[in-house]
Amino acid sequence: MELPDAEQLLASLAEQLKPHVGPETALVGIRTGGAWLAERLHQTLGVTPPLGTLDISFYRDDFSQIGLHPEVEPSHIPFEVDGRDIILVDDVLYTGRTVRAAMNELFDYGRPASILLAALVDRGGRELPIAAQVVGATLPLPDSQNIQLNQTGSGRLYLSLHGIATE
């Protein structure tokens, strides 16, 4: 299967997000892929508040099944969340559980005026009533496949597809 070029999708995200950027806008990326994207968008869109990143490990709903993620990084929200219009960025939108966790975590920093979800790829398969307002590409995939955003040493982003071993 021919995968879209992540750099082109990112350019499309930036184009679509431009009209949404206002004086109270702040960008938050979900680690790891979403944080890469948010960092690039932060430069392109000229958003004033410093970039935020979330590691949602402490908010995952599967903690009781799989335990704590072995590599938790601190979340970093270097601005007041109260009253902000937040653009939340993730690489792949799938079940919606990551986004739910991210929103729960954001509200522990304060009460944003709004949250807009931007995803590079919407692969379908939602298990929660969550939708992205801004999407780079819609790419329905079966559960047996996993799409992943990667970064080269020079910072170039690309997508890859992996089969999931079934038991």
Binding site: S57, F58, L68, V72, P74, S75, I77, E105, D108
Partner: peptide, 18 residues
């Protein structure tokens, strides 16, 4: 992991739902 919990304590809501 403790490093991440240090930042949790600096937030408005110092709790996580784990």
């Amino acid at each position: 992991t403790a490093e991440s919990f240090v930042t949790v304590a600096e937030r408005e809501v110092k709790k996580v739902p784990l």
